[in-house]
Amino acid sequence: MASEATTETTKRDFLFVATGAVGAVAVAGAVWPLIDQMNPDASVLALASIEYDLSSIEVGQSVTIKWRGLPVFIRHRTQAEIDEARAVPLSELKDPATDEERTKPGHEQWLIMIANCTHLGCVPVGEAGDFDGWFCPCHGSHYDTAGRIRRGPAPANLVLPDYEFVSDTLVQIG
């Protein structure tokens, strides 16, 4: 073989490369299911949408519910908290968003957010911190009464899930 080697491309080279390419596709095809099985399965995805009745939450109370395995805060805000959130100029915010953008029109008293700190995922403590909202004890992130990041290592505001009001007291998350 070695003595016959030329720089010319031969039919054999072509077959060699083609076989290799087909082999690589086959290996990738076999490996993908072995990786994809680790992704969220059908039963996890099936829980993707829930309804929650808000009528039992008084002004100034919060509940933490579970959605897709994640904790979600539902807070019935006081007027004072809403006013405090609205008084903040956007220029003071690390991740600028108005209070209106973080709530639904006509339902401004309800703040619904995924309860995991946007830093590394701990659940912040409510009605705490230097901005009267939430304080994350893990590495010291402070959120305000609209759940916006104000100080600490977290890069972003608490995340809002997709949700809508089915009626004034019934909310559908997901």
Binding site: M38, N39, P40, V44, L70
Partner: peptide, 17 residues
């Protein structure tokens, strides 16, 4: 993150793997 956890949060799937 979802691939590692097998869900949106750490849960049974995570523990198993």
């Amino acid at each position: 993150l979802q691939l590692l956890r097998g869900g949106f949060a750490v849960d049974n799937a995570t523990l198993n793997r």
